[in-house]
Computed example of a mutant assay.
Amino acid sequence: MIAKILAKGFASDIVGYVMREFHDKEKYTADTWRVIDSDGILGNDYRRIVDSFDIGTSLNRKISKPIGHISVSFDKADLPRLTDDFMVLLAKEYMERMGIKDTQYLVVRHLETDSPHFHIVYNRVNLHGKAIDESNNFDKSHKATKAIKLKYGLTFSPKKKLYEDAIAEMKPRIQAAMYRCKSWDEFKRRLAPAGITVQFYNDRDTGKPQGIRFSDGEFTFNGSKIDRAFSYGRLDKFFAKNAGIREAQPQQPTPISVTAKIKESPIANVVENVIETGCQALGGLFQVGPGYNPDEAEFERRMKRKPKKKKGISQ
Rank of each mutant, 00 (worst) to 15 (best):
K311M: 10
R301H: 05
A131P: 06
F219L: 03
R180S: 04
E247L: 12
D102L: 01
V18M: 04
I70Q: 08
Y46I: 06
M95L: 13
P253Q: 10
Y122F: 15
E93V: 05
S135D: 15
K92E: 10
I212A: 02
K151G: 09
E96H: 11
D51F: 07
R20C: 14
A260D: 06
Y232W: 13
P266C: 09
K160E: 15
A194M: 02
L106D: 05
E186D: 12
F86Y: 14
E296T: 00
N44D: 13
E134H: 04
M303Q: 11
N273A: 12
F286T: 08
N269V: 04
H119I: 04
E134M: 09
Y105M: 08
I120C: 13
K146V: 07
G207M: 11
G16K: 00
T277K: 12
Y179L: 05
I275W: 04
G223N: 06
K76G: 04
R61Q: 11
P290T: 06
K27D: 08
A7P: 00
M178W: 07
A144Y: 12
Q252K: 13
G43N: 08
Q249Y: 13
D102E: 12
T197V: 06
G217N: 03
Y17A: 02
I100R: 02
P307H: 12
L127I: 10
L127H: 03
V125S: 03
R302S: 13
I70S: 07
G233L: 13
D31P: 01
S157P: 10
